[in-house]
Design a protein around this nucleic acid. Sequence first.
DNA 1: TTGCAAGACGAACACCATTCGCGTCGCGAA
DNA 2: TTCGCGACGCGAATGGTGTTCGTCTTGCAA
Lengths: 240, 240
Amino acid sequence: MTGVEPLPPPVWLRSANKPVKRQLSLDAVLEAALRLLDSGDLESVSMRRVAQELGTGPASLYAYIGSKAELDELLYDAALAPVVVPEPDPERWRSQLLDLGVDVAKALAARPGTARVALETVVPSTPKALELMDGVLGLLKAGGIPAREAVVFADLFALHLTAGAWEMTLRSAPKQAAEETEVRAAQIVQYLDLVPADRLPHLREAFPLFGVEDDDPAAGLRTGLEMLVEGLVARQTGGG
Amino acid sequence: MTGVEPLPPPVWLRSANKPVKRQLSLDAVLEAALRLLDSGDLESVSMRRVAQELGTGPASLYAYIGSKAELDELLYDAALAPVVVPEPDPERWRSQLLDLGVDVAKALAARPGTARVALETVVPSTPKALELMDGVLGLLKAGGIPAREAVVFADLFALHLTAGAWEMTLRSAPKQAAEETEVRAAQIVQYLDLVPADRLPHLREAFPLFGVEDDDPAAGLRTGLEMLVEGLVARQTGGG
DNA sequence: TTGCAAGACGAACACCATTCGCGTCGCGAA
DNA sequence: TTCGCGACGCGAATGGTGTTCGTCTTGCAA
């Protein structure tokens, strides 16, 4: 090859040193960010690193996104992408709702840190988030829940689910958090030994039961969502 | 007063210029941090600022606390301090539980940012947090909930409550977040206009109902906790 | 061919938590 | 009373963060 290639441009030209990579775009930025996210967590997605991934400086990114928070929301939306909203079936709306909730939480937990974005944003309003909210409202309507109640519930549902996803993220973090949890548990035991024996009696009794069933981190979340739905229908039939 | 005060020490002594402020202590650090927290939020509590508040550099603080995270937990514990655990009354355990939950959330929301500490910690284990957990377990026992269920529920209860407190924190933030919310709402309306009219039908219909009853930010939280408790007892009587 | 808007981006700003290592002080031992 | 030592205090530096300014460059429209 070497023979036929054109000679390199003169070194004193500015363009020789900076080969002018016009390959940036919103998609390229998002793609690079997702690459970083998947090989770590949201913490490892910084402007600098994304820029480095693209072979440029952080300032270049601001042509396509307004702020880091904006990029975070894009990642959040991307994390939500694989979730599909089911067609409401009045016979099965409750299990559909639970499945949807668990799916969302799993999707968020699969991209570590994205759940946190939802917690930090006052009201998450990315396209996919809105689509999912619409889906939840649709299922509630299929279940005969009045619109007024449905709105309140949908809000709570999303909140609980997001918090659950965040907790799943913490617990399923590869190594660090696992031993963190153990250290904490040990500290609590130690603390309980320190405290007068007649204090915290219920905690003493129940403590060994904590952390059971942690083989499936989504199980606890599902239970919580079940309780929420159960409470919703109880409140409907009861009266108030 | 001026007359009786002792004359200042000679200026050429080193101790005159640096009066050797051996006034640092864990309490002093915590106090300064709380002062900053109360005149802002957790974001405004940085090592540098706490140190500045004490007239020193950030390095000095590390004699008393191991890390910023540790200080955060101290603040979290301090925020929880005013909450009192009620004596369980088998007649009223449900309302007691709800009141306790709302109290905790209000206490956390009163020190903006502390709820976030609980969300970020794998398992919050400060003394007050353990005391509250013990209280919750006590109420559940008074309600006749089996220990196994009680543990799962207490976890969910705490999670929901913390998330709710965080949301309250966001919404009740003095100025910034309030208009943030409005901006978001406007953006969503705008987005709904942009999207084909047959998409997101339920959201379109229900959107005006969102944000109603925001005069009492704790109301939504209480509703959520009610549903959770309702679901718990329904699951008990039902069978599973 | 020329002019110009828009993209690219190096450098700098103002933060952040944390660590190193030196100076200084108070206190206990001699 | 004097000395020495250990613990505290803390200035300075390290390596991060998001964001902005001003300049350079380049492709395209006129």
